[in-house]
Write a protein that binds this DNA or RNA. Structure first.
Lengths: 176, 176
DNA sequence: AATTTACGTCAGCCATGTTGACGCATATGC
DNA sequence: GCATATGCGTCAACATGGCTGACGTAAATT
């Protein structure tokens, strides 16, 4: 390989290759640092409650799809049921999450947040929200759309329905 | 709060609020799933070598900034020196990384990859690259730029120089 | 000469993932 | 109706990769 500083001496193909590598590394790095920084604030808040990031993930998805059965949550988190059971046990002990027997299928356990759980989830969401809102605001709508497009492209097509299902509107609920 | 299904009945402010929350949750979720999927392939390859994600991160940054001292790597990884020392120990045992006494400051330990380390890092990079290349390709250049912009916005301004320094061209090296 | 800095190291702990095995209640298919 | 499959719970053991605290040593700085 030629000197990295002598791009003008590289054949066109190699130059394009080099630029592509730089752009890919940039994406990898920004994704890593962006994700790390996004969750940093939530981690601090979680620590004050004696909880960790794993608890947050469960809390987050249960908030997002109340009534979700265990199996669906396992599919989203992509961990073993043994790992999840420890996390859910902690959350139930603390009165943040409750289970109900499934209506359609009585083997299922439908998960939902208690009011205390919903409160904590909201606080944690706000930790993430502040950073994301700032980033969206400075970047503008076009950039945000591109951000979504690239990230969606990183998800294998067969897994996309799972993620997109999270964005469907929830069935009507009454909170008043 | 009104029924989520009846947006037309919401006051304008509440509607905008709701849309903003949906967009933020979408970003959070895509960032989580996008990152998870990006590193999935590399994790498999690492496992065949008896290494983990932590080893990959060290390897990655050393490849990116050869000659980087320990302290700089610590700042990038944001972990304790005790954690890093376990990881670096593994990598040195396996002959993937070497240290050299600093030239300007003899207290520093400059890290670099051995040829075997560089080979492994290249293989791991290719695992990530395939997914990122596909995502970039389907999304297009405008989307990629937006992707970078939003992610950069997630990084606190005071930390950005650290990340941007990674993207500076390397000092000339001879590999021929 | 005193202090600070960059790094190494020992020891123990915690969070969160893993595998494997087994049990029970319910749903489903023949 | 009975066999089988599915959804979930649980016990036990282990791996990875973080953490804190304490202490040491060489080299740079003041």
């Amino acid at each position: 390989m030629a000197d990295v500083n002598s791009l003008h001496r590289l054949p066109v193909g190699a130059s394009a290759q080099f630029l592509r590598e730089a752009e890919i590394r940039r994406g990898i790095e920004l994704l890593y640092f962006g994700y790390s920084n996004m969750v940093k604030g939530a981690d601090v808040h979680l620590a004050t409650q004696g909880l960790g990031r794993a608890h947050h993930r469960a809390l987050y998805f249960i908030a997002r799809r109340p009534g979700m059965p265990i199996g669906d949550l396992l599919a989203l988190l992509n961990i073993t049921k043994q790992s999840l059971s420890r996390v859910l046990g902690d959350l139930q002990e603390r009165g943040l999450v409750v289970q109900a027997v499934g209506t359609r299928d009585r083997r299922q356990r439908m998960l939902s947040l208690t009011p205390a759980g919903a409160t904590l989830e909201t606080e944690l969401f706000e930790c993430l929200r502040d950073g994301v809102t700032r980033a969206y605001g400075h970047a503008g709508q076009t950039a945000v759309t591109g951000f979504w497009t690239v990230l969606t492209g990183l998800i294998p097509p067969e897994d996309r329905p799972l993620v997109e299902a999270l964005q469907q509107p929830l069935p009507a609920r009454r909170t008043a």
